[in-house]
């Protein structure tokens, strides 16, 4: 078990290279269980790279070398006995552009179960139940319950993004990673997703990458500022924005660069 059981994610000296380019430098951090933690920093600072380390999906994007340890719920995910399939089942990701699969709404929600579950769990009644539960959790059930067989691609962007979150839930993930989940949405959509994040927090640990500092400020409990692959500062969101301890953080949140 982890030495710090109230932390969902613990990274120790994480260094990462894309080919010869070093994208992460000695990142060490502890992300608390059940909170919303936002990763902020200018483009190219390694936020998304770090996020993708947490379910090792980086390895699907080409040649990466990762050194260091990342403990998720006490287990080092870079241990040789870690199954990427099981890891990604517990650590889901939501993307910048909603990416519902070109299937029906229903099939999108049960996709994870179809991928992982066997036998009993794939009975029609079990799937129906999972769909209702997941869509209720993301506040879509009421709107979509009569057209579950429609194409998910036809939904509004906000609904698509909620559906993408709902798609993760039947697998009972522990951690949900969000890579700029609102940047394709309008103001109302953003508000709806943020509201949804608040309702999910507690049961899930949420890590969100955002370019939008105002969003980090209003929608996260803790905030991590990154610059050029290094973690500069990690503290409670209000502390980071009101009293940043590092001058680089202060200059960034003042908008001097970025």
């Amino acid at each position: 078990m982890s030495d710090l059981p109230d932390h969902s994610i613990t990274a120790r000296d994480v260094n990462l290279w894309y080919g010869k380019f070093q994208a992460l430098r000695d990142v060490t951090l502890n992300i608390k269980h059940g909170l919303i933690t936002s990763l902020i920093g200018p483009s190219g600072c390694g936020k998304t790279t770090l996020l993708r380390c947490f379910n090792r999906v980086n390895e699907r994007y080409g040649y990466v070398t990762t050194k260091g340890e990342i403990h998720l719920l006490g287990k080092n995910i870079y241990d040789p006995d870690v199954s990427l399939i099981e890891l990604r089942k517990s650590v889901g990701m939501v993307f910048q552009r909603p990416n519902p699969l070109p299937l029906s709404i229903y099939e999108n929600v049960v996709f994870g179960l179809r991928v992982h579950a066997e036998g009993e769990a794939l009975r029609r009644s079990a799937l129906d139940e999972a769909v209702e539960k997941a869509l209720t959790e993301v506040n879509l059930w009421h709107d979509l319950k009569d057209r579950l067989d429609h194409k998910a691609i036809g939904l509004q962007l906000e609904q698509q993004q909620k559906l993408c979150i709902a798609r993760l839930l039947p697998l009972k993930p522990e951690i949900i990673l969000m890579d700029e989940p609102c940047s394709a949405l309008d103001v109302e959509g953003t508000a709806a997703i943020e509201e949804l994040m608040f309702s999910l927090k507690g049961r899930y640990t949420l890590v969100i990458v955002t370019h939008n500092m105002a969003q980090a400020r209003r929608a996260s409990d803790e905030c991590i500022f990154m610059l050029l692959g290094k973690m500069i500062e990690h503290s409670r969101t209000e502390d980071l924005f009101l009293a940043p301890s590092d001058p680089k953080t202060a200059e960034y949140i003042e908008g001097r660069y970025g």
Binding site: V57, R88, G92, F95, V115, H116, L168, L171
Partner: peptide, 9 residues
């Protein structure tokens, strides 16, 4: 990407 991130092979 959507598939990889729910752990599909």
């Amino acid at each position: 990407e959507a598939c990889w991130n729910v752990g599909a092979t």
